[in-house]
Simulated assay, not measured.
Amino acid sequence: MTDASSSASRSAGAGVLPVALLACSDYAAPRLRQAVFQALEAAGPRVNAGARVLVKPNLITAQPLACASPEVTAAACAWLLERGARVEVADSPGFGRAEAVARKIGLEEALRPLKLRVRALNRPVPVRLSLSASSPACAAFLEGGPRFMISRRALECDLILSVPRVKAHSQMLLTMAVKNCFGCVSGLRKALIHTREGRDPGCFADCLAALWAALPPVAGLADGVRAMHVTGPSRGKPFALGLVGASPSAVALDEALCAVLGLPPGATPLGAALERRRAEGCGAAGWRAAYVRGRPEDFDARGFELPRDLAHTSFHPARFAKSCARRLWAACKP
């Protein structure tokens, strides 16, 4: 077992998972960098020199508010590099290439002083997911489980640091650190999964929970400085939440962020799916969150609007064809 994964296991085994929630009003340096460093120092993953860490920002599309901010991602990378980690930054956006999205939102420039660049989560490997036995929506998959094509880059690292922006989501209600792991599925295969499983939010959530469980340990660093509300994941409105959050567990961080927004852990489809896995002892059992810096009640989320009605995101043939065309066009551009 690697240093990074063994430390994550020790934290889980102890039954306590630290969560840090720090106030940060804007992205100005050095205030933002200081907040990220303090959050990760207080409740980040324990990373020893030589650990292979995949920093997984949310690069859904070339719209700055839809993505994790370049400043937060770069600060996370700087913190990891200071600890001697071997850092790789990568994603597989829903539209376009990771490198092109990073360039357009300013992430390429933010990573240049660190001598890092954004790569694609490609080289897919077929992985059969193990669904919750009590999944109410995925009965057709329970015997064999769905097969996801997951990037080898994600599977072969020691640790994943998921760096999402806190956003509303038209299908999952919220998208945060665990949902951000969906980008570990390579390229157009995400659209295929949306077409196949996206018709039922409950089934899609169970698949996402199983995907998280199939990956190496996933820590989280949330960009909640400027969140997205009303709808999402790409067409919502900005909301000044003023928060940076960190935890060695993406699940614990997401539950803390739900508490900031006044929601119980199982209020979202993905949260409910993770609760079912925890009840069955499927990799998320027997722990409690310990707030080591800040608490949910320290933040004012009044006015944060969630989607009133959840809609499926199944790609009908015309939308899927459009997605393919946009990817091909993006691949041909310099």
Rank of each mutant, 00 (worst) to 15 (best):
A12Y: 11
L17A: 06
S9T: 15
R46Q: 11
V36F: 08
S7Q: 15
A43V: 05
G15D: 06
F37I: 03
S6Y: 12
V36W: 06
A14R: 13
E41S: 06
V36G: 06
R10K: 14
A43W: 08
R10A: 15
V47Y: 08
L17E: 13
A29I: 03
G44F: 01
Q38T: 13
E41G: 03
R33I: 10
S7H: 15
S25A: 10
P45D: 08
E41T: 03
P30D: 04
P30R: 03
L40F: 02
S9D: 15
A14H: 08
V19H: 07
V36L: 07
R33G: 13
L21M: 05
Q34R: 12
Q38W: 11
A12F: 13
R10D: 11
V16N: 07
S9E: 14
R10G: 04
G13P: 04
P30E: 05
G44C: 04
A23F: 06
E41D: 15
P18I: 04
S9P: 11
S25G: 05
A28G: 07
V16A: 07
G50Y: 00
F37G: 01
A39K: 06
L17I: 11
L17W: 12
A12N: 09
F37R: 14
R46G: 04
G15N: 10
Q34M: 09
L32T: 07
E41Y: 05
D26F: 00
S7N: 15
A20E: 10
L21P: 02
V47A: 03
S11H: 10
Q38N: 15
A20S: 05
S9Q: 14
R31M: 10
P18A: 01
C24G: 06
D26A: 08
V16T: 12
A20Q: 11
A23Y: 00
N48F: 00
G13N: 14
P45G: 07
R31L: 11
G13L: 13
A42G: 03
G15K: 07
P18W: 10
A23G: 11
L40P: 04
A8I: 03
L22R: 09
Q34D: 15
A49W: 00
S7F: 15
Q34A: 07
Q38P: 12
A12C: 06
L21F: 03
R33K: 13
P18F: 02
S11R: 12
A43Q: 07
S25R: 08
G15H: 08
Q34E: 12
Y27M: 02
A51C: 00
S11W: 09
Q38M: 10
R33D: 15
A14E: 12
A29C: 02
A51M: 00
P18M: 09
L22I: 01
A20W: 05
R33Y: 13
Q38E: 15
A39V: 10
A20V: 01
S11F: 11
R10V: 15
V19W: 08
A43G: 05
V19E: 08
A42P: 11
S6R: 15
L21G: 02
G13F: 14
S25N: 08
R46T: 09
V47L: 04
N48L: 07
A23M: 01
R31F: 09
R33N: 06
S7R: 15
S7C: 10
A14V: 02
C24E: 12
A29Y: 05
G50C: 01
E41W: 08
L22N: 05
C24D: 06
A14T: 08
D26I: 04
A14L: 07
G44H: 04
A28F: 09
A29V: 05
